[in-house]
Simulated scan of single mutants.
Amino acid sequence: MSYTQLIDAINIRSAVRRYDPAPIDEDMARQLDMALDAVNTLSGLHLQLIRNERQAFGPAVDSGRFANVANYLAIVGPRGDNESREKAGFYGERIILTAVQRSLGACWVAASIDREQVERHCSIDSGEELYLVAAIGYPEHHEDYAQRSYEDVVQVQSTHRTSKSFEEFTRSMNDEDRRLAPAWFTAGVEAAMKAPSARNLQPAWFSYNAEDGTAAAHIDYQAQDNHAFNDLGIAKLHFQIGAGSGSWTWGDGGLFTRQ
């Protein structure tokens, strides 16, 4: 089963921790590498697809938290740069949604990995660091999902997610502000509510400025951890896809302009 719209991928995406042992085929790997090349050129990041490497997730597989992880994205970028961490979330999630469109599964991973093994198998240039990784591959029992309708898969996946409420995602707005906000803002927030985040903290929240028609994304500093900027980037991408069109400026408080 494949999905033509990125919003479809958002709606059916969930964190996949158990994988089919079948390797990613060469054509699929070539498509992902092409997408990575484009993203790296655009963002200045150094995201890489590592295939057929089981040692990085060895401890997580041994503990039962994951199964059959043999492929992952290594998320590499400039050392100590929060803007690049945000871009890593934004563009890394773009790659993951592309993979989901092609019936692959993925899971962002901040811990549960052997970082030394990842660093041994990926390329890290001078001035760069490994931010985190994302497991990727064919989900366990993926053939069963291929027989299901889109609506059925959405329903199943929705039971696997927990999320803060819409009100929590728009914490600075009152009920009247929310009622008067345009439909694209509501759709953007609803898509961001489905975004993955480290330890499911969901530190990003959004506001709408009726005077100039812009939205803003913020970090909840009570819920943040070391991956807050990565989570902010992921949430911004989901919002942008849900809103339909437009672009963000980077950073905490970055503005979204509808196009």
Rank of each mutant, 00 (worst) to 15 (best):
L97Q: 07
A56Y: 11
S84N: 14
I96K: 02
N52D: 14
V69F: 11
P78K: 10
R51M: 06
Q48M: 00
F57G: 01
N52C: 02
N82V: 13
I50D: 07
K87V: 05
N52M: 03
E83L: 10
E53S: 10
N82C: 05
F57Q: 02
R51V: 06
V76G: 05
P59W: 01
Y72H: 15
A60T: 11
A74R: 07
A60H: 08
G92R: 01
R79Y: 13
A56W: 12
V76I: 12
A99Q: 03
L49H: 01
A88S: 15
P78C: 05
K87P: 05
F66T: 14
G80H: 13
R51A: 02
P59V: 01
A67C: 04
Y91W: 06
S84W: 08
V69M: 08
I75T: 04
F57D: 04
I75L: 09
R94L: 04
G77M: 07
P59I: 02
G64W: 01
V76P: 05
F57H: 03
G77T: 07
N82S: 09
S84F: 13
T98H: 10
K87Y: 05
A67L: 08
E83N: 08
F66D: 11
D62T: 10
G64C: 01
A70C: 11
I95T: 03
I75H: 03
V76Q: 06
Q48K: 00
A88Q: 11
P78I: 09
E86T: 11
I75S: 02
I95V: 13
G80I: 04
E86K: 01
D81W: 14
S84L: 11
E86Q: 13
P59Y: 01
I75V: 13
P78H: 08
D62C: 03
G58L: 12
S84R: 13
D62V: 09
A88Y: 13
G92Y: 05
A70K: 11
A60L: 06
N71S: 15
L97D: 07
D81P: 12
A67D: 10
K87Q: 10
R65M: 08
G64L: 00
L49F: 02
N71C: 13
Y72T: 14
A70P: 06
R85H: 15
A70I: 07
K87S: 06
I95H: 01
F90D: 12
L97Y: 06
Y91A: 01
F66I: 12
F90Q: 08
P78A: 08
G92N: 03
N82Y: 09
E53D: 11
I96N: 12
N82K: 05
F66G: 09
P59H: 00
D81M: 11
I96R: 02
A70L: 07
G92C: 02
N68Q: 14
R94E: 07
K87R: 12
G58C: 08
A56P: 12
A67S: 13
Q48C: 00
F90E: 12
V69H: 10
A70M: 10
V76K: 03
R51Y: 03
G80V: 03
Y91V: 03
Q48I: 00
R54L: 07
G89K: 01
F57M: 03
Q55A: 09
R51S: 04
D81N: 15
E83M: 06
Q48F: 00
Y72A: 05
A88M: 08
P59G: 00
L97E: 07
D81C: 14
I96L: 15
F66W: 14
E86I: 08
